[in-house]
Nucleic acid binder design. Structure first.
Length: 552
RNA sequence: GGGCGCGUGGCCUAGUCAGGAUAUGGCACUUGCCUCCUAAGCAAGUGGUCAAGGGUUCGAAUCCCUUCGCGCCCGCCA
């Protein structure tokens, strides 16, 4: 480039089918060089000698196209996959700790599908980050301080259930206590004052009240995590919001904020003026203590984040889009406190129903447990339809893995900030862009492996000559890059797209290129391709928190 | 009123950050393919003003401005 007197950023694009692998557009150079792009491309192409992985450089319509030497790329990638197995795609340790907070639901009842995106996005991003070489810890922040929890606790203490819970589980029981207590609070001023008194006692550390609230929360929390376990989600740790109230760190935060020049006091309550921090709307002040001196949610969250920063290099939070302002306020408060660190946030839009937003009060909800049951049941029907040779137990197991996979896939495949309208027909779709599609390709690969003499042995990638084989091998080779991209951007939906594309490419290969019937070198090379496909599919699914059955 | 996000064939969606070659897949619909490694599959076909308008550029789904529609938020709630 320098030789030709060209100054340009060497941006490379992906070339279209049949045009090579990388492309350099010459259009931006046309003006300064006062030559046609096609001529410039010719000149550049003639000056670059193919070397290493690049086997051919050619000019075409204003682009310089680079062709990668397929044999080298495929040989390296397939050997890597076959040798590293479930580690294929895993990046080198980066020596960076990431504390990823997700789910963090109020422990007042079961999770519904409207909130299901949180644990699924959180768990998937955590898996991807681990795969990319980060040292990841996941954490569930338990909101055990505040009105909602007190109302539920009051209900548990004073009420008897008026109806049977939908399920025999603590979160389904406690949500009824919560709902009934809420009704009483609205109807009866006396109950309201009892709740207010309890709230005060809780905030002042009254032992009996703290114990009752903690017990109720722990029961619900345990039940929620049981539900999450069903969809392959677990947590490395839990952090209780009350911790920061009790150990005095919230008070320290409050003191530091009060010392700020942005701090104002109105009737005993303190707030920060955040107009100069890009906060806009009807209200630019952010209140951090009530008139009675007690703290507010974001103030306690501030203490939590100070704690996080002591424990990690990077803090990532998965939050609903309703938290955007709160996080802006938190970031501003951190700046005011002189803390130069901020959490990274992955925001997602809520899942709604065709009738509108999910609402527990209006009875317009789909609980995750119900969705899981329905998905597994539906998958069971499908397995039974297709397989008559399997044991009941085996069919149940496949149904579980397929049903849960398709549930997770259908939520993770959509970009987080796009709103989703929940439809049963989409959630239970087992064809096309779905987990079963990917799982099926994996099962087919396993089937071939099982019928071959064993594992793939030595092979020569030069024996892979058809377009189907080449496209598949290239796609397998790109898994590490896909993982890196998802990790860097803290996103997961593009990994779902990749898995779908990989499965599709494998299915085409499967249809048109015989493996077991092939002979000699060709068979060896194809077996290696099948085994590498199997690992790539399995590892991609694993990052999505989806299990890969060997038959289905 | 203000802030943030989203808008891509009948429906769902990738690509948008880092502008480039005929806009990616799926569902649905029509039509083929199981004496051949699992048809939860493969192939072909119908279907697009990339919300609308303007601008920047050799080139815009992508960047800028305006408008419209939808969502979320603007509590001494969490």
């Amino acid at each position: 480039m320098a030789e030709l007197g060209i100054e340009a950023e060497p941006t490379l694009d992906r070339a279209p089918e049949g045009m090579g692998d990388l492309a350099f557009p010459c259009f931006p150079l046309a003006k300064s060089m006062r030559k046609a792009p096609a001529v410039i491309a010719q000149e550049i192409a003639s000056k670059i000698a193919p070397e290493g992985m690049i086997e051919r450089v050619e000019a075409k319509g204003g682009y310089v196209n680079f062709h990668v030497r397929f044999e080298d790329l495929a040989q390296a990638a397939l050997e890597d996959a076959v040798a590293r197995k479930d580690e294929f795609g895993k990046g080198e340790p980066r020596g960076v700790r990431i504390l990823l907070e997700h789910t963090s639901a109020n422990p007042t009842g079961p999770l519904h599908v409207g909130r299901a995106r949180n644990p699924i996005i959180g768990d998937t991003v955590a898996r991807i980050l681990r795969m990319a070489g980060y040292d990841v810890t996941t954490e569930f922040y338990v909101n055990d301080v505040g009105r909602q929890v007190v109302i539920m606790t009051w209900g548990v203490k004073h009420l008897a259930l008026e109806q049977e819970p939908e399920r025999d589980a603590d979160h389904y029981r406690h949500v009824l206590f919560y709902q009934q207590a809420n009704k009483r609070v609205e109807e009866d001023p006396d109950v309201l004052s009892q709740v207010d008194q309890m709230l005060l006692k809780l905030e002042h550390g009254d032992e009996e009240t703290v114990r009752l609230a903690r017990e109720a929360c722990e029961k619900v929390l345990a039940a929620i995590t049981e539900s999450m376990k069903r969809i392959n989600i677990s947590y490395d740790g839990f952090m209780w919001e009350s911790t920061f109230v009790q150990d005095g760190t919230v008070d320290k935060v409050v003191e530091r904020l009060k010392a700020s020049e942005h701090c104002r006091e109105v009737d005993g309550a303190y707030h920060l003026e955040l107009e100069s921090f890009g906060i806009s709307g009807r209200e630019t002040k952010w209140v951090f203590t009530r008139a009675d001196g007690t703290s507010l949610y974001t103030t306690r969250d501030l203490a939590y984040h100070m704690d996080k920063f002591k424990r990690t290099d990077v803090a990532v939070n998965v939050l609903g889009e309703d938290q955007k302002l709160g996080m802006q306020e938190l970031a501003a408060a951190l700046t005011i406190m002189g803390v130069d660190r901020k959490p990274e946030i992955v925001f997602y839009a809520f899942v709604s129903l065709p009738e509108g937003r999910m609402s527990t009060r209006k009875g317009r909800v789909v609980y995750i447990d119900d969705l899981i049951d329905e998905a597994v049941e539906r998958a069971y029907d499908e397995v039974k339809k297709r397989r008559t040779d399997l044991s009941e137990e085996r069919m149940r197991e496949i149904a579980r893995v397929v049903g849960i996979g398709s549930l997770r896939y259908n939520i993770i495949r959509i970009q987080a900030e796009k709103q989703i309208v929940f439809k049963w027909e989409d959630a239970l779709n087992f064809e096309g862009a779905s987990a079963p599609f990917v799982q099926y390709a994996h099962a087919r690969a396993c089937s071939i492996m099982a019928k071959s003499d064993g594992r793939a042995g030595a092979f020569d990638a030069r024996r892979l000559v058809t377009d189907h084989e080449k496209a598949l091998a290239k796609l397998i080779a790109s898994l590490p890059a896909v993982i890196d991209d998802c990790a860097d951007n803290r996103r997961a939906h593009t990994l779902a797209s990749y898995a779908q594309e990989l499965a599709s490419q494998f299915n085409q290969f499967y249809r048109y290129v015989p493996v077991l019937r092939a002979e000699g070198d060709i068979r060896e090379a194809r077996l290696a391709l099948v085994e590498a496909s199997m690992w790539a599919l399995r590892n991609a699914l694993s990052c999505l928190g989806i299990e890969a059955p060997e038959e289905m």
